[in-house]
Design a protein around this nucleic acid. Structure first.
Lengths: 230, 230
DNA sequence: TAGCGGGCAATTGCATGCACTTTTTGCCTT
DNA sequence: AAGGCAAAAAGTGCATGCAATTGCCCGCTA
């Protein structure tokens, strides 16, 4: 009855579901603790429960959702403690990426990093929050790629995804853009010098500052979404 | 040993499948490149294809198997390059764990680390390869736990799993046990001193040496299992 | 009124079936 | 004999159905 063949063909249905649900979690559209009902999701995306179940399984393997046998799935609820551990991991991972980037980036990568970074100064002057956020993501992705290590790249991107729902908080800090840019500047300078240790330290400090800003707001958020749940 | 009917009920069928298949991959019983036929696995474990499919999906999300749409699943084949990136990651992760362990282990954790480490000297004298290997795993797990960071623990254990199939090679090196013990000793000493940087460096060196030994053998292995595959 | 089963609705877990895709086989052409 | 094409076989992807488990609601008892 519901044989919608007309979904855009970009991989299998399950892959699409993983991306679709994962996106909604990462962007905060689905809140930590929120119940993920198989039938509802199936109806919502107009597929049967089978691909939904597979998608939930994979998301569970990624740590984005939590599955209790016979009791359904919910968006992963992270404790304050686990959240702190992820932010700390993120700082360490960024430090590694920055250090490796300083040692391994090609001259082309260095050049475009520098150019984009300098260009972003304009966004700070304009106070273009949203555009800067987009640039910021790009900037960090450059660092991850510049490390020239596929596995570290995977771990870093994965960790960033899982932290994404908790980063919105930092938007609230005044003067954040200028501060962020200065921290980026320290990283870029160290990378251009080829000073891996300095780059690593600068990157670690950068993340640490962000995490402190985010940590507080985060927990209130998920409590609001999952009032009763043990 | 085919139709194992009375599997103990510990979690859902899918979980059991993930563990069962994952173990076979990690222990090298299933070789990289080997085809994972859904129907065969279903028959082998006496379940329907549905849980097998879910398990393969999760294993794919973990990176242990590779899934080509409409073309079946195979045990993940890692390129020489990606393997190197995983070993390098492992060195960095172990370094982080050792550094944190030096800074954060409780006195109880330090004590039992030291005791077990000293006890293992006997295994070296006896040349008890297998027992030492078991101890070795324990030793490293202690470091991962001692870091008191759940997310780093997850990443480290996961990376170790994915590297497990490629570590058998190191068994072949003569004098390996004594060398390993000395490297452990350097790590333990630094941790007892509370010297995070020294512990990290010692741990990184330890892994680097293992990886060099493993890397060469590894690729021959998976080629043997997957002669034709593009 | 608070506490306690017991049955019912809702939901999950798995098996089965069918449609579609890929691969193989065998025949026909050149 | 080699190449190519077509039909069959094999295998994957998803929908549906049913058994099993959980949670809830309501009546019963103290």
């Amino acid at each position: 009855m519901s044989g919608k063949r007309s979904l855009i063909r970009s991989g299998t249905t399950v892959d699409q579901m993983v991306r679709a649900i994962g996106d909604r979690i990462v962007t905060g559209f689905l809140r930590p603790g929120e119940k993920l009902d198989e039938a509802s999701l199936a109806a919502r995306f107009d597929v049967s429960r089978t691909p939904v179940r597979e998608a939930l399984g994979q998301l569970s393997a990624m740590g984005l959702v939590e599955r209790r046998p016979n009791r359904g799935a919910i968006v992963a609820v992270v404790t304050q403690e686990h959240l702190a551990s992820m932010f700390e991991s993120m700082a360490e991972l960024e430090a590694i990426c920055a250090r490796f980037s300083a040692e391994r980036m090609t001259s082309g990568e260095r050049r475009s990093l520098e150019i984009e970074h300098q260009a972003s100064a304009r966004l700070v002057q304009l106070g273009a929050e949203e555009d800067y956020e987009y640039f910021n993501t790009e900037f960090h992705t450059r660092l991850y790629r510049g490390a020239h290590n596929a596995h570290i790249y995977e771990m870093t991107v994965m960790t960033r995804s899982r932290l994404a729902p908790f980063r919105r908080a930092q938007f609230m800090l005044p003067g954040r853009l200028a501060k962020s840019w200065q921290e980026h500047d320290a990283i870029v300078t160290a990378i251009m010098r080829g000073d891996g240790n300095a780059a690593g330290k600068a990157a670690k400090d950068h993340v640490s500052i962000v995490s402190e800003a985010s940590a507080v707001f985060a927990v209130g958020d998920q409590l609001r979404a999952a009032p009763q749940h043990q």
